[in-house]
């Protein structure tokens, strides 16, 4: 696959949310607004790129039977690193995303990419794969966030263009599932053309 293909495949062909359907918990929980979705996506991308790079470096020397625990330790290390950095420099964002930052450890996208791609490919390609999938994830979360924010609060990225309240259900739990479901329908419809 070309270098360009590695970066763009996350958008459509291997979109982590709509095609691979992975990492659903943060996708549903943190997309109450466009900004939150974007921040969560970027946080995941940070871990994804770094863990992909390190895992592609160490994969050849890690014994087969313990490769999963080793990968998990590597991923958990980067997640903790991210937690510390966020607490120090963007404490408000850290507070908003809350539990879902440490839960990046068990995001199946991260371990999935480590296992399926980084352990078999070169460092450069793995980094590009991390960027590509990361962009795909970030964009999906932002789109879901935008839809939920428009319907639920009548605003985009905090800019309010409809006075009064939106349909509250879209900010609450049911809206997350419904919006993801209908966006997936739309995605299927468009992608299959």
């Amino acid at each position: 696959m070309s270098k360009f293909g590695l970066i763009t495949k996350g958008l459509l062909k291997e979109n982590p949310t709509f095609v691979l359907v992975l990492g659903l918990c943060p996708t549903l929980a943190t997309t109450t607004s466009a900004m939150n979705g974007l921040e969560m996506g970027l946080a995941t991308m940070f871990v994804l790129i770094l863990s992909n790079i390190v895992i592609s470096l160490i994969a050849p020397v890690v014994p087969d039977k313990v490769h999963i625990p080793v990968y998990i330790v590597v991923i958990a290390t980067f997640v903790t690193l991210l937690q510390l950095l966020m607490q120090a420099y963007v404490p408000d964002v850290y507070e908003t995303l809350g539990l879902f930052i440490p839960l990046i450890v068990v995001n199946c996208i991260v371990l999935g990419r480590a296992e399926a791609f980084a352990s078999k490919n070169s460092v450069g390609d793995s980094a590009l794969d991390g960027i590509g999938i990361g962009i795909g994830f970030t964009l999906s979360l932002t789109v879901i966030g935008i839809v939920r924010e428009i319907l639920g609060s009548g605003s985009i990225f905090g800019w309010k263009f409809i006075a009064g309240d939106g349909v509250l259900a879209f900010v609450m739990a049911p809206g997350a599932f419904l919006v993801l479901g209908y966006l997936m329908v739309l995605f299927n419809k468009l992608a299959k053309r």
Binding site: L178, G181, V185
Partner: peptide
Amino acid sequence: SFKGLPIAFITVGI
């Protein structure tokens, strides 16, 4: 287009 996961998500939403 609703087959499989999309309809599942909508069901969970309800």
